[in-house]
Design a protein around this nucleic acid. Structure first.
Lengths: 141, 141
DNA sequence: CTAGGAGCTAGAGCTTTGTCTAGGTCAAGC
DNA sequence: GCTTGACCTAGACAAAGCTCTAGCTCCTAG
C-alpha cells in the first residue's frame, strides 16, 4: 500500500536496484515512479506488479525495446487495444516457437545422455572391453 | 566426403562464414579444420555434423564456454565419458528448466491475450460502452 | 555530532556473441 | 594480363542488458 523503497522492490522482484533504475531510465515503467520529497523512489504495489510482468516478458525473450513499445501503448491509454493485442500475440507466437525449439534440442540432448549412460553402464558391466567409447563421429549423432 | 568450403558449410548450417571462423578460433571444433595447400579450410561431413550439434547446444542456451569444455573432453579421447555425461545432464536439466519457465510465461501471456481479445470483441458488440478498457492495474494481471 | 546505510545521478565499463573491415592471396574466366 | 569472387588473418566494432563507480544527499542511531 503505502509505498516501497527501491531496495524493498529489488528484494521482492529479484531485480537489482541498479536494474530497477536502469529499467526506469529505459522507459519500461508504465508511469514514472513517484518520489519522496528527498527524491527517493516510492514504488506502489502496482509498480511491482508491472515489474513482475516485465520480468515475465524479459525472461521469455522479449527485448527491452519491445517492452518499451508495449509500455508506450499502455501509457497512451485506451484506444490502442488492438495494437497491444497484436504485440502480445506476436510475442506469444515467439514464445511458442522457442518452446518447440527447446523441446527439439532437449530430445537431441536426451538421446546423447542415453547413449552415454548406456555406454557407461556397459563399461561397468563388461570391464574388459574398453574400446566401446563414443567416437567423434558418433559424438555428433 | 570430399570436403566442403567454408561457404558451403555456411550455407548448409546457416552459420555465417564469419561465425564459422569465429567458432574455430574459439576452439569449438572437435579437431582443427583441415586446410588446402593454399590455406583454405576444408570441412568434412563430420565437421558439419559436429557444427550442427553445436548449433543445437547454442540454441538451447549453452554458452560457448561450455561447448568449449565439452569439445575439450571429446578431444581428449576416451576415458572421460562420465564427465561428458555430467555436462550433458546438467545442460539437459537447464533446458528442461527453460521450457518450464517459458511455459509459465506463455500461460501469463495467453491469459493477457484472452483478456484483450474478449475486451475487443465486447467492444465490437456493444459499441456504446467504450470505458471497458484494461486499466494499468488490470494490465499487470 | 558523527558514522553508517540507503538513495540519488551521470556516466563508464563489462560480457557475450558475433559481425565487419582492412589488407592480402589465390584460381578461374575473359 | 586483368578482373572477379571466394577465402585468409588480425583485429576493430557492435548491440543488448546490465553492473559498477564516483561523488553527493539524507536519515537514523548511538
Amino acid at each position: 500500500m503505502g509505498g516501497l523503497s527501491i531496495g524493498q522492490v529489488a528484494e521482492r522482484t529479484g531485480l537489482s536496484v541498479h536494474a530497477l533504475r536502469f529499467y526506469e531510465r529505459e522507459g519500461l515503467l508504465a508511469d514514472p515512479v513517484r518520489r519522496e520529497s528527498s527524491g527517493r523512489r516510492v514504488y506502489s504495489e502496482d509498480d511491482v506488479d508491472w515489474l513482475n510482468m516485465c520480468i515475465k516478458f524479459r525472461s521469455s525473450g522479449m527485448p527491452l525495446d519491445t517492452i518499451r513499445r508495449y509500455t508506450g501503448l499502455v501509457r497512451q491509454g485506451p484506444g490502442n487495444e488492438a495494437d497491444r493485442l497484436a504485440l502480445l500475440k506476436s510475442h506469444q507466437a515467439h514464445v511458442r516457437a522457442q518452446i518447440e525449439d527447446l523441446t527439439e534440442c532437449l530430445d537431441v540432448i536426451t538421446h546423447k545422455v542415453a547413449v552415454y549412460e548406456q555406454h557407461l553402464t556397459a563399461g561397468t558391466a563388461t570391464t574388459l572391453w574398453s574400446g566401446n567409447t563414443p567416437t567423434q563421429t558418433s559424438e555428433a549423432s
